[in-house]
């Protein structure tokens, strides 16, 4: 893959524009994080005076004290969140790929209606179905149970849709056929041939799924009423809910602690986004 064109002036203009755009966007995108981190070192009064500052202050420890003093147990919240988010991420990604595989690799009579159904589910406004969802969960006795948040993630229409769209051009039927000729069973073909080929798509969706699950507040808040089962976002929203004496420094610290694990997971998975695991190689 030799570079065909030389260093023309067009290239330079392109690069200048590209870098300017990238740096500008990077500044805007990092801005919320910088504010969050800096504000977590500032006192409530300082924040109320100037909500945004680029100069860190010295109240990090006292904010931490306030945070821990308020029946805020970040470690417990962290583990609860981690269990829920990682389980539902695995469920979402694995089963959605499987469903998409069923839609792409096989020709069955109800395939089209099934896909239409998935698309319909995708479009249903979520605010009101939550009433029925809550009632159902209550009835089968899954309140205060992580399963109520994990199991539904097996049926994730958006992810199925993405996997299907990605799979159509990226999964060559020839390979499946040759595997069949080699005598591999369908389940093995899926797990050992199709799944690895979907890696970049799965990594992308895994991040999205993890972030969504980690940040979700409304359902966990009404389903997990037991304090021992609270997730990090619930704990932070409780800090915010204490209307008489809002501790802004502690809130920002809480927000930062909430986002930190996601950042770590994200950086771990991001190599797939950066490298993109050359699909072409498999396709060869």
């Amino acid at each position: 893959m030799a570079v065909v064109a030389g260093k023309s002036s067009g290239n330079i203009i392109f690069k200048v524009l590209a870098y300017t755009l990238c740096i500008l966007l990077a500044v805007i995108s990092l801005f919320p994080f910088v504010i969050m981190i800096i504000n977590s070192t500032r006192s409530t009064t300082q924040i109320q005076q100037h909500a945004v500052s680029l100069i860190p202050s010295t109240y990090f420890l006292s904010n931490m004290e306030v945070l821990l003093g308020k029946s805020f147990d970040p470690l417990k919240g962290f583990f609860n969140s981690l269990i829920i988010s990682s389980s539902s991420t695995i469920c979402t990604v694995y089963f959605s790929t499987m469903t998409a595989y069923a839609l792409v690799a096989y020709d069955w009579r109800l395939r089209k209606p099934f896909f239409t159904l998935i698309m319909c589910v995708l479009m249903i406004p979520a605010q009101v179905t939550s009433i029925g969802f809550y009632q159902f969960v209550y009835k089968i006795g899954l309140t205060n149970n992580f399963l109520a948040l994990i199991l539904p993630s097996i049926a994730a229409p958006t992810v199925v849709f993405f996997m299907r769209q990605y799979m159509i051009p990226a999964l060559p039927m020839e390979i499946l056929q040759s595997a069949r000729i080699d005598g591999a069973g369908e389940i093995r073909i899926f797990n050992q041939i199709a799944l690895p080929m979907m890696k970049p798509a799965m990594a992308t969706q895994a991040i999205f799924a993890f972030v969504t699950s980690w940040n979700s507040l409304f359902l966990p808040q009404i389903l997990l009423i037991d304090t021992d089962k609270h997730t990090l976002p619930i704990m932070v929203s409780q800090l915010n809910g204490d209307i008489y004496r809002t501790e802004f420094g502690a809130i920002y610290l809480g927000l930062f602690l909430t986002v930190l694990p996601v950042l770590v997971i994200y950086f771990l998975l991001s190599k797939h986004i950066i490298a993109g695991v050359a699909l072409g190689g498999v396709k060869g």
Binding site: F33, S237, V259, L263
Partner: peptide, 13 residues
């Protein structure tokens, strides 16, 4: 990596 980061923060934050 940086461009995706705003998506990580909760809507509430």
């Amino acid at each position: 990596v940086v461009f995706y980061m705003p998506n990580i923060i909760t809507a509430a934050s």
